[in-house]
Design a protein around this nucleic acid. Structure first.
Lengths: 252, 252
DNA sequence: GCTGACGTACTTGTATGGTAGCCGACCGAC
DNA sequence: GTCGGTCGGCTACCATACAAGTACGTCAGC
């Protein structure tokens, strides 16, 4: 992959190595490129990305703070399994903040806000037609972010985004059901319509049920991919991957 | 100060140096021991705490993520000034999450939950009698945390706590008005009463007005201590402290 | 006195070395 | 066959060294 070169190429654009590595890793984890439970070694990542261990380590500390990796000193760092508690917590946070923002946005959102939201809806429909799941995910993220921005609380979005990351890992597995996309888009449209009409309570209810649908998806996924989840309060056995690197030696 | 020794003494108790340093710094910043705008040098802190730059640096990165310090590469790290935007954002987040939790807690909180909250109320009154501001701050924090826990969303508390940190820095200056304490305690009691009575809407309204009172305090403080605040979107002139360390040499 | 170039001392960013601790495989004892 | 000790290799943690860059004091020139 060109991630190593891309890293240094983009580095000149103001962001330092730590931030670059952080973004790369976060993207890989949320995008399930790095599966829950898999080990992420400072050394391996540093070697792969062509940087030293320091920025990698600092990124991992930030990711641990976000709940995306678990660091066990002297044992290893592992992509965190999806925990029942974390998902419920993330859903609660997201619902509370997005709905509260929407309630404030009603009567405050400008015509321009609504117009920009509708542009995103159109783009989402296009992504649906092309079965572009990755594109839809990004547009979905932007839609919800702008919805919050319309309330004047754009600066609270990072908090939602962080909570959302926990949910998105699971959602990534569920969405292949393409029919879901059009359903979600319809709900988006309903929210925008009600926002424009100034119907506060129905807009709130609409967004809330939309978010809960997403939440219920996660539960379905759990049945299909239990290995990505963790019930335990003490998942203290991440188990080191015993595939020795001597395998490349081919002895034997 | 015994902070350096205390650091290593407590280190054996499971937490590593990074976490210890993080807690110390966070406490100093929220407690205004480190004033907004003041410089915090990795080297100086490392020397003072008797550790290397690494854990200090990692702590500062976490604090920057929390919005408590601003890191300017090759320039310095400074305790962030209180920004209008951050305070408003923190208030929005806190209000949305705490009120949403309270609404869920109504009808769900056990008798034991209520009893434990009342114990805290009693302790707060005692702190008031003794004019123990520091104690009251801790009891206030615990009260709100337990209130959220009663809703079953204790794991969402760290998010509130982080937002609260922005508000607390300013509050710390306002509370010396001792009469405020009893007022706040009365509001706490009202919330618990309404929670126990199962009066959802009035409990919500009561907590909301309580939180807004706290918020309005911040505005008063701004008038008295403008140097701790920052309107600027680009406060790009933190200005290095020009007090040379050669002062200790005593030459001249 | 004022202005501008320069040098020094500081800053954070990155790279690397050494340490303590844990896991898991191996191997001898029973 | 089963259990217990040992040892190798890995881990994250912390310390340290080097690099890139900024700000400020100093001083020469005007």
């Amino acid at each position: 992959m060109a991630s190593a070169e891309g890293l240094h190429a983009a580095r000149s654009r103001g962001r330092n190595t730590r931030q670059l590595v952080h973004e790369v890793l976060r993207s890989r984890i949320v995008g399930l490129e790095l599966e829950p439970g898999s080990a992420v070694s400072e050394n391996d990542l540093a070697a792969e990305l062509g940087v030293s261990r320091t920025p990698v380590r600092e990124s991992l500390i930030l990711l641990a703070d976000e709940g995306l990796v678990d660091i066990y000193p002297q044992m290893g760092t592992f992509v965190s399994r999806i925990r029942e508690r974390d998902v419920a917590s993330a859903q609660f946070i997201r619902e509370a903040l997005e709905c509260a923002a929407l309630r404030e946005a009603v009567g405050k959102a400008t015509a321009r806000d609504v117009a920009e939201l509708r542009v995103l809806l159109t783009a989402q429909e296009e992504a649906d037609r092309q079965s572009d799941m990755e594109g839809f995910f990004q547009l979905d993220e932007e839609f919800h972010a702008r919805l919050m921005a319309a309330s004047g609380h754009a600066s609270a979005w990072p908090v939602v985004s962080q909570a959302k990351a926990q949910l998105d890992r699971a959602r990534r597995l569920s969405l292949p059901l393409t029919q879901q996309m059009s359903l979600l888009i319809g709900q988006h449209r309903e929210v925008v319509d009600l926002l424009e009409q100034g119907d506060l309570d129905r807009a709130d209810a609409s967004l809330r049920s939309h978010l809960r649908l997403v939440f219920s998806d996660v539960e379905k996924i759990r049945a299909k991919h239990p290995e990505l989840f963790s019930d335990e309060d003490t998942p203290l056995k991440p188990r080191r991957d015993s595939a020795r690197r001597t395998a490349s030696r081919g002895d034997g």
